[in-house]
Nucleic acid binder design. Structure first.
Length: 1059
RNA sequence: GCUCGGGUGGUGGAACUGGUAGACACGCAGGACUUAAAAUCCUGUGGCCUCAACAGCCGUGCGGGUUCGAUUCCCGCCUCGAGCACCA
């Protein structure tokens, strides 16, 4: 009896389970099953197939950070996955790989702190990333996975470095060539330092001319030294961005606002011997070829800015009573007659020579002052004008006038020639300088009448030249040309192009990077022979510099080439490995080449590159540089790494902050440590804030204030009057403690209990928070008390008690406290960064557990245009989840019965399907995924309305949807009887005929405003349409008996009646 | 300061090449089913006026213009975001 009952219960339970399986869309089972199956069957494996057109989709290399992926990261991965899957359905052979940019600073910083080998933490992080990526159902060919820290990978990074080292840039052929060509040239022609049309701060300038015979007579050491001035990878002494806190130099793009991009540490200029790559040689090509690639405007613009081309002229000013002359660079040679002074950078080499005895002291002081100011200080107060007269005078080359020579901080040593001709009338910086020091301001380009040249410079490049000798009457354009001619004729200068781009500093005084494959013999660097690669990263005892300041690699024991020659001790920067990785994916396991000729010929270049815009001037410039270099040497057939590049917008987070109430600083000092023994409490009766003191204060002194109070002027006034203020640095509250009320925007509702018990605080802090007061307008609560209290509206002046504590108002009154309902609010910042420290990381895994990967994928795409930044919010995810459930319902009814039938579809069903095919296809090609998701929703809604269960229609729908929601589609596809994966299917072909309409409901507008709709046959001509429209009642009503002036009929669109 | 993007309901967003502004979704309100909840389904939902319907008026940051017709094109301004910034 007992048993029987149990059995029955069990059967019932099992039956329910069964039913549940069939009726419900069980995403976790489906996704787990198919992910496993795809992995087992290597569904996404790619190989070269000459019969198919290729398509290469690449995501920017992630750096595997310890924090794991948050919901912002997959946005681009999902988008690229959709494109990859779509292209595959369209018959392309798709390469869609993934790997890791695994060398870098964070892992090393972590290693320094914990002593763990960076390889270990990096591997852990990679494993975590992989796990997360797999759960999203991304169709990568994991057999092609690469890691930049893998010796099999970095041997080729080192190999490319050696190619750079063994090359020089031939400006005549305009490409990189083997250094042997140059040596041969030296052996036959020598070297003549004559003409340099480009100023890039490059170092060819310092090479003295020599003859062929001299070259041959030089020692090897001397020859090598000369060659170093030409190699594309070279070592030189140069000012670099030194970051003491990170203990390394940084490239220009790694410095933002005078501090390091990673960590925000101060950066100073330091003269150091450094490896650099001669990217400046490619400046012009990097700029020009931007026109050949389909990249976002913002990236192109950023690169153009970064390269910073400006055309102008060099010009030499003779100096009175001095042998040397000052060379300046100007983009406005036409304003030559407006020059009233010359300014040198404080680092300018001629300063000492030119300064007259009378000014020596002032100049020395000034130069000393300027040189000791950090980059950051200089940048911080650019508006502050400083300068010093040298006592010297230059001679104007055309007027012969004397021009004072000044030194000014606003002139940068590293740009142009480090000297400018001051034209205060037509350059705002020169104007500010002239005004500050009372120098002459001369107008040489006629400014508009209402423009006072003494007040502000006239910088526009248009107008007639005046006060300018032989240039008078010309317009700016003609004057520019004529001046340059005159300058060249006089032999005092020539037309020149200047680039802002600097050579890229390549050495890092750090451990966790690729060793630079170089050894030193007699102080001269030699590249390692290629067959000795890879040069492995040696083990060291500590990841810190040595006592005498050598980089960590100097700690390695007996780490010498052939046991005797020192290796280079710096390592490559983070961007080295990522500058060519797109090539390795083509043939990642190749042992003899970075990739086989066959693979390179087949895959060519990336067709679609997706990633964040933060790499605009770093990675994306370097990868273009390396690509062009490898192209020059004939290693690859393409000049650019990626045909099309799209930046996905950032997904921003919502952060939640609470503020503590503090004493003002002055009070703090007077008040022995700032104990807050009183706190504000709102009196409902008087409608005023009052300062309350509890008689036997047993609770803590901390007071948190509800977010709405920080925006409440009454409250702010009150606390200010009481020497209180909200702490300026907020406490970020983990968004897991927050709930949202749709009626309250800009604030979150804090769950105080989970907040104060949160394990992310240490025990002491938690104890503190438990007794803290949480103040709202309606009352306050002690963290632990679970009750809000406020002043009783009918208070009497006497003691009152809560939790056994007698409390009273400090001044006179004793007040009773009553409990109230109140929520404590946090202040929301809607468009903040998602980061661990801001405690607003939303993990994709959590979303996947709750809704499944397909919902996550659809939802991320549905949020809005790919390229637009948008805040993350789970509001709305239900919509995409419901959509998938509705889709499921088309296949299984309420009772879990399979619905598909093999009948011929109706025209209405075909119309819905083909409308969707057209829309989705166009949208994917335009990367407009949000609209394609809504097209799917419309489609499913309409097929649902039509009660469509036709196998042919729904199968095609599955194929359409499979790039977006691969798991559910694969499941239903196989349930529909297909043996092969849906990824092998063909994209349905759009047939226009199903969409042809015979009738159209014309909107009829009167004077542009739509008043009515009339259904008409589309074959009607304009005349017939017009007569029908005129017969319409509503139209007649609007005409009020008048004749229309005109009737406009746009076929299939609109009819407009003009009255 | 310069350059490049944006500004559309309560919210995310849609609108082809100048042709019915607000698709789709969230939220909200009402209803159905349910002992109840969840789930699901149905209806409504830019604002104003109106008991309501019909009709009407207003409405894509602001002001003007071009056009039969403007979220879309042009001019001026406001504003938000991003990038660059003594670059001669």
């Amino acid at each position: 009896m007992q048993v029987q009952q149990t059995m029955r219960a069990f059967c019932y339970f099992a039956g329910q389970l069964q039913l549940h399986h069939m009726t419900e869309y069980d995403f976790s089972r489906i996704e787990k099953y198919w992910q496993q199956r795809w992995a087992e069957q290597k569904t996404y494996q790619t190989s070269i197939d000459p019969d198919k057109p290729k398509y290469y989709v690449l995501d920017m290399f992630p750096y595997p950070s310890g924090a794991g992926l948050h919901v912002g990261h997959p946005l681009g991965y999902i988008a690229s996955d959709i494109v990859a899957r779509y292209k595959k359905l369209k018959g392309f052979n798709v390469l869609h790989p993934m790997g890791y940019d695994a060398f870098g600073l964070p892992a090393e910083q972590y290693a320094i702190q914990t002593g763990q080998h960076p390889a270990v933490t990096t591997k852990n992080n990679i494993d975590r990333y992989r796990e997360q990526l797999d759960k999203i159902g991304l169709g990568y060919d994991w057999d092609r996975e690469i890691k930049t820290c893998d010796p099999d990978y970095y041997r080729w990074t080192q190999w490319i470095f050696i190619q750079l080292f063994n090359s020089w840039y031939n400006h005549e052929t305009d490409k990189a060539e083997p250094i042997e060509n140059l040596i041969r040239h030296f052996e036959t022609e020598g070297f003549h330092d004559d003409h340099h049309p480009i100023i890039t701060g490059n170092i060819e300038h310092s090479v003295a001319s020599f003859t062929a015979a001299e070259w041959k007579s030089f020692s090897e050491k001397k020859q090598q030294e000369i060659l170093l001035n030409f190699r594309l990878a070279y070592i030189s002494e140069a000012y670099v961005n030194w970051c003491p806190a990170l203990g390394t130099v940084l490239a220009n793009d790694e410095v933002k606002d005078g501090v390091s991009e990673r960590g925000g540490y101060p950066v100073e200029r330091k003269l150091m011997k450094q490896w650099s790559l001669r990217i400046t040689a490619y400046a012009e090509r990097l700029l020009n070829d931007l026109n050949t690639i389909d990249w976002s405007d913002s990236i192109k613009e950023a690169q153009r800015n970064w390269i910073g081309k400006s055309e102008g002229s060099s010009l030499t000013f003779a100096v009175e009573n001095a042998a040397s002359a000052i060379e300046v660079f100007t983009t406005r040679p036409d304003t030559i007659f407006g020059v009233t002074f010359i300014t040198l950078a404080p680092e300018h080499e001629l300063i000492e020579q030119l300064t007259t005895a009378q000014y020596k002291k002032q100049v020395d002081d000034y130069v000393h002052y300027a040189k000791n100011r950090s980059e950051r200080e200089r940048q911080a107060d650019v508006k502050k004008i400083t300068g010093q007269f040298t006592g010297a005078y230059a001679i104007h080359p055309f007027s012969g006038k004397k021009i004072p020579v000044w030194i000014g901080e606003y002139v940068l040593a590293g740009y142009g020639t480090g000297a400018v001709m001051g034209v205060p009338g037509h350059d705002s910086r020169d104007h500010a300088f002239a005004k500050h020091f009372g120098l002459d301001i001369v107008e040489v380009v006629e400014a508009p009448d209402d423009h006072n040249i003494q007040e502000a410079s006239y910088d526009a490049k248009e107008g007639k030249l005046i006060n300018s000798g032989f240039l008078n009457g010309l317009d700016v354009k003609a004057a520019l040309k004529k001046t340059i001619e005159a300058i060249e004729q006089k032999g005092i200068g020539e037309g020149k192009t200047n680039y802002r781009l600097r050579d890229a500093v390549f050495g890092r005084q750090r451990y966790w990077g690729e060793p630079i494959p170089v050894y030193y013999k007699e102080g001269i660097p030699y590249a390692l022979p290629e067959n000795e690669l890879p040069l492995l990263l040696p083990e060291v005892d500590k990841y810190l510099p040595t006592e005498d300041g050598e980089p960590p690699l100097a700690r390695a024991h007996n780490w010498k080439y052939q046991g005797q020659y020192d290796y280079e001790h710096t390592t490559m920067p983070g961007w080295a490995g990522s500058s060519w990785y797109f090539l390795r994916y083509m043939d990642p396991k190749n042992k003899t080449h970075f990739a086989s000729k066959e693979a390179i010929e087949y895959w060519q270049q990336v067709d679609l590159y997706l990633g964040g815009s933060e790499h605009a001037t770093g990675h994306l410039l370097y990868v273009r540089f390396w690509t062009k270099f490898l192209y020059d040497l004939g290693h690859i057939p393409v000049n650019e790494p990626a045909k099309k590049l799209v930046n996905q917008g950032m997904i921003q987070g919502r952060t939640e902050q609470i503020f503590m109430l503090n004493l003002n600083f002055k009070e703090f000092e007077n008040n022995a440590g700032g104990r807050l023994d009183r706190f504000p409490c709102f009196n409902q009766k008087t409608n005023l804030w009052e300062n309350v003191k509890l008689k036997e204060e047993k609770e803590g002194e901390l007071s948190f204030i509800s977010g709405d109070l920080t925006d409440d002027p009454d409250f702010i006034n009150f606390i200010t009057a009481n020497s209180l203020r909200p702490n300026t640095s907020p406490i970020y509250v983990n968004i897991k403690n927050i709930s949202y009320d749709s009626n309250i925007t800009n604030y979150g509702v804090l769950d105080i209990d989970t907040f104060i018990n949160n394990s992310e605080f240490d025990v002491g802090t938690r104890e503190w928070y438990k007794t803290a007061r949480f103040i709202t307008k309606n009352g306050f609560r002690y963290g632990h008390s679970r009750q809000f209290y406020t002043i009783d509206s009918n208070y009497q002046e006497k003691d009152f008690e809560i939790n056994g504590i007698i409390e009273r108002k400090e001044t006179v009154d004793f007040k009773k406290i009553e409990t109230v309902n109140q929520s404590f609010l946090t202040k929301s910042l809607l468009n903040d960064k998602i980061s661990k420290s801001k405690k607003n990381v939303v993990n994709p895994d959590d979303i996947i557990n709750q809704y499944g990967a397909d919902t996550l994928r659809l939802y991320e795409m549905f949020l809005g245009p790919l390229e637009q930044s948008k805040p993350w919010s789970t509001q709305g995810i239900e919509g995409t989840f419901r959509f998938l459930k509705k889709l499921w319902r088309l296949f299984y009814n309420q009772n879990g019965e399979w619905m598909l039938v093999d009948e011929a579809p109706t025209p209405a069903e075909l119309k819905v399907l083909h409308k969707t095919i057209k829309k989705v296809q166009e949208d994917i090609e335009n990367l407009s995924f949000n609209t394609s998701v809504s097209a799917f929703m419309v489609c499913v809604n309409e097929l649902g309305d039509l009660k469509c269960s036709k196998k042919s229609v729904l199968s095609d729908l599955l194929i359409l949807l499979s790039p977006f929601a691969p798991h559910i589609c694969e499941e239903l596809w196989s349930k529909a009887g297909n043996k092969e994966s849906i990824t092998r299917a063909n994209f349905p072909v759009f047939n226009e005929n199903y969409l042809v309409e015979s009738h159209f409901s014309y909107p009829i507008s009167i004077n542009g405003k739509v008043r009515t709709n009339i259904e008409m046959d589309l074959s009607l001509d304009s005349k017939e349409v017009e007569s029908r429209v005129m017969a319409d009642e509503t139209v007649q009503k609007w005409l009020e008996g008048k004749q229309p002036k005109k009737v406009i009929h746009v076929k299939g669109r609109i009819v407009n009646v003009v009255v």
